[in-house]
Nucleic acid binder design. Structure first.
Length: 105
DNA sequence: TCCGTGACTTTAT
DNA sequence: CATAAAGCCACGG
């Protein structure tokens, strides 16, 4: 396991503000790892960050996770239906995320 | 080193 | 909207 990649991914997820979401691809592009690796990292260290703010490009998450994320989405005002987030109005700008990440490093 | 696997993505049917 | 296919990258056997 590449611990440096883990740290970068967790830090990037930390830059997603409440009420907003990013896709695995967004996070991966910012920290320089493949989207699949982002998922693998969140699977093991997701409990340390706001994992519900990271969803697939289609706005979905595996069934069990979508169920638990729903409460957070409601609490933060993220529009969603049938376990699927509405990315049209809550997806963070990839450039802004990269900038926030750069400041946080 | 080859191969299967996965919280993925994009394009084409 | 549902499938399929190909690309993707790191990990473990």
């Amino acid at each position: 396991m590449d611990e440096f990649a883990v740290q970068r991914v967790l830090l990037a997820v930390d830059q997603v503000p409440p009420g907003w979401v990013a896709s695995y691809g967004d996070i991966g592009a910012v920290v320089g790892v493949g989207p699949r690796q982002v998922g693998a990292i969140l699977r093991e260290h997701g409990d340390q960050v706001a994992w519900w703010r990271v969803v697939s490009a289609a706005g979905t998450l595996p069934a069990p996770l979508a169920g638990r994320a729903a409460a957070h989405w409601d609490a933060e005002g993220v529009a969603h239906a049938d376990g699927r987030v509405d990315l049209s109005g809550h997806r963070v700008d990839r450039v802004a995320l990269a900038a926030a990440y750069a400041r946080a490093v």
